[in-house]
Nucleic acid binder design. Structure first.
Lengths: 230, 230
DNA sequence: AACCGCTTGTGAACGCCTGAACAAAGTCGC
DNA sequence: GCGACTTTGTTCAGGCGTTCACAAGCGGTT
């Protein structure tokens, strides 16, 4: 039932909710007890009306004329985002990026817990990263089964990412965060989010160039067709 | 002049062009000389029609009935994305994430060159990361001026990110890639792209939860209004 | 107890991006 | 030399996300 359930909360909204949650944590530390949508939006870098629309997906959770209760909104967001119970994650590929992620304090404080680190390099296996031992890649299925992890993070080289992905899915992982620069193929029912660091830089370079020389790209667009058609 | 110039190439398209460029590099290494839109789209993980639409922004660059020339398309994309001349970048905050980025092979091979690494920790300053020496944070302005860097990457703790950002902008940097979990405020004419790793995980957790317990969030949405309105 | 100002929540319009179907064009085979 | 097949480039419609503007509701004040 509810096979083709329409997404109740847009994915873009979910991403922003996570941002609001972090801002709220900062406000709570500062001793604030209530916030207005304008202030919260400013801190999160979004439009106030958009923020209110985002929050409206969770039902009414503010008080008109006053604002939002910092503690109350925080609790609601935590519940909605699934941070109530800490979610076990496995991380495959303990290179420099993988090590950085394993040791990233931002994860643990937000209810995420890496329960298994895996790598295929014998020199890395057996070492400790962020207080956790690195297991050999062969134990992937065993680690997933033992910990019941449903989220996997891939920070391996691109060549082996698809293989790792297949093994994760076969082992029961249904949500994957992929840092390898390849498009992963997964069966229906599995979610993949891709973070491509070099693409981010390249987009910046494009915007940079577009500003620099009075938009050379546009000039190229106007001039090239004649050359290439000829 | 051209104050409010409409964006000729949509930003979402630019991001995908970078992906196509990488796929093309792999194909070139494999000895391929031409590709069809279907094959390229499959490797990039997008819709074939969308890919053709993306490429059409650059003017006609394929041959009907045959496909795209791997070498030709690669050259065109490289030119458009501004990777022709290598763009100097500075990286501020040489923690674990910063070190990973500085040493990330994917950047150097794509025309990006880190010309300055900066950190405020005396224990980090003076060490070498990825073959480059780490300079003290005080030299930020000097490094930017000397290298002519126009792109800055921020991997500092959230508390100092805005200060670092202000100094980068004042020194002449106009494109910033921000990994710190805060919304940066910049003057008009400066582009900021934000990568938030914990948000990515949190979105995955949400999708995970939404699948798990027959969408408890939806249940909450249906039940709450009655309670709170009453 | 009633008024006033402030803030939320929501409805509608706008624009952008995505996905699918069609026409143009070039090449290969006969 | 001609026909047919393949593949690009484009046009159109649909959906999604964002933004603006207004009505509803609550607290503080007199």
């Amino acid at each position: 039932m509810s096979e083709s359930r329409p997404r109740i909360v847009p994915e873009a909204t979910v991403a922003r909710l996570a941002v609001y949650l972090r801002v709220l944590a900062g406000l709570a530390d500062g001793g604030r007890s209530s916030v207005s949508s304008g202030e919260l939006a400013s801190a999160a870098g979004v439009n106030p009306a958009g923020l209110r629309k985002d929050l409206s997906y969770l039902g009414p959770c503010g008080v008109r004329g006053v604002g939002y209760s910092v503690a109350g909104l925080r609790e609601r967001l935590t519940e909605v985002l699934g941070g109530e119970r800490s979610r076990p994650c496995v991380l495959v590929g303990i290179g420099r990026l993988g090590s950085a992620l394993a040791d990233y304090a931002g994860f643990a404080s937000r209810g995420f817990q890496f329960v298994g680190l895996l790598d295929s390099d014998p020199r890395t296996v057996g070492t400790e990263v962020g207080g956790l031992p690195v297991h050999p890649a062969e134990e992937l299925e065993a680690v997933v089964a033992r910990t019941g992890a449903t989220i996997g993070v891939i920070t391996t080289p691109a060549e082996v990412a698809q293989t790792v992905c297949d093994r994760l899915v076969a082992a029961g992982v249904r949500s994957i965060l992929n840092f390898a620069p390849v498009a992963l193929t997964v069966p229906a029912g599995v979610d993949v989010r891709k973070v491509d660091l070099s693409v981010e830089l390249q987009v910046l370079a494009f915007l940079d160039q577009q500003r620099d020389g009075s938009a050379p790209v546009v000039a190229a667009l106007r001039a090239d067709p004649q050359e290439s058609v000829r």
